[in-house]
């Protein structure tokens, strides 16, 4: 900050830096613990004192993707030797992989839920950002009667508590057969993200000088051509940031998914907690599932870092 610093200011600065480091460590500890647990053998996951140093292994991930059952008796040496390396890991943990009559490995519920999450999040993001960009342009460039009221209406739909919307939607979906389908969730997430997308994109498009399009219009572009060939490329960063925010929201959403899906279209957020039923859960498998589920969001957060402020404040505060 200031170029000239007294000794006490420098000392204060050092204390502040140390404090920031400690706070960062505390904030990241749960994330570290999830990651560490995902690579632990099961017997080290819940030890006292907690196991910090261990030899990482990928058996939790093998277990995450396969259907397993408790071993009644140890496998014969021949069986053990014939098994591929990943199946041996499961044997070592006192379990065996469930195979179909023809010997195919049966998958667990996880890969399916992960795919559902991907399908629903990606489709709803494309729809919300697509529609949102058009609408934001409309509001940004044209005179709209009652613009402030319409924008407030759009924003207020985002604020509705999910459970409040879910009750009538559940009843309506039951009539039209959209419960437990991908489209059922896609529609809900698109509606939920649309308002956000309009607000955020309006901020980005407002920043593109009108003169760019006006020059193009003078040069003979139609309004549509100007929109697609000038505004869209100029807004590319904003569109990408908005898309990532919408994706993360849809990816993380829990309440709608819990209420509207149960088997076919269930996404990962309601599925992962449902594994912790009665008895002792295998925390390494839950951690592995959690780790894979959080990984895309962690990467996106890093990519988005310069737009987080804008996104979290609906474009109200810019840097």
């Amino acid at each position: 900050m200031a170029a000239v610093q007294t000794r006490s200011e420098r000392a204060l600065n050092r204390i502040a830096i140390a404090a920031v480091l400690v706070i960062t460590l505390i904030f990241l500890a749960p994330v570290y613990w999830i990651t560490a647990t995902a690579f632990k053998p099961r017997n080290l996951a819940t030890t006292i004192p907690p196991t910090v140093l261990f030899e990482p292994e990928i058996s939790p991930f093998v277990k995450l993707f396969t259907k397993r059952s408790q071993l009644r008796e140890a496998p014969t040496p021949e069986e053990y030797a014939a098994a591929p390396w990943w199946e041996r890991m499961v044997f070592d943990g006192g379990e065996k992989i469930v195979r179909s009559g023809r010997g195919e490995v049966q998958p667990s519920g996880y890969p399916n839920r992960f795919m559902n999450s991907l399908i629903v999040a990606i489709t709803s993001t494309v729809l919300a950002v697509g529609m949102g960009t058009f609408t934001a342009y409309g509001f940004s460039r044209f005179r709209v009667k009652g613009e402030a009221d319409l924008l407030f209406f759009i924003l207020s739909t985002r604020m509705l508590p999910p459970v409040v919307v879910a009750i009538p939607m559940f009843l309506m979906y039951r009539v039209v057969g959209l419960n437990d389908t991908h489209w059922g969730l896609i529609i809900l997430y698109t509606a939920f993200n649309l308002s956000f997308s309009v607000w955020l994109m309006k901020g980005f498009i407002d920043e593109i000088p009108k003169e760019y399009e006006e020059a193009a219009l003078v040069d003979g572009y139609t309004r549509m051509q100007a929109f697609f060939k000038i505004v869209i490329p100029e807004a590319a960063t904003g569109i990408a940031a908005t898309a990532v925010f919408c994706f993360i929201t849809a990816w993380n959403e829990f309440a709608f998914a819990l209420i509207m899906t149960n088997r076919r279209a269930q996404t990962a957020p309601p599925f992962i907690p449902s594994q912790v039923g009665s008895g002792l859960p295998d925390w390494t498998v839950i951690a592995a599932g959690t780790f894979l589920f959080l990984l895309p969001v962690a990467i996106f957060t890093f990519l988005l870092r310069n737009h987080l402020l804008r996104g979290m404040s609906f474009g109200a505060i810019r840097k």
């Binding site: 480091l21 829990f254 951690a287 589920f293 969001v297 962690a298 870092r305 979290m312």
Partner: peptide, 19 residues
């Protein structure tokens, strides 16, 4: 540091909450 500190709010409440 700021980016690392911001990570928790981006994660799924249900999934991280479970942990």
């Amino acid at each position: 540091l700021t980016t690392l500190l911001l990570l928790p709010m981006m994660l799924s409440m249900a999934v991280v909450g479970l942990f």
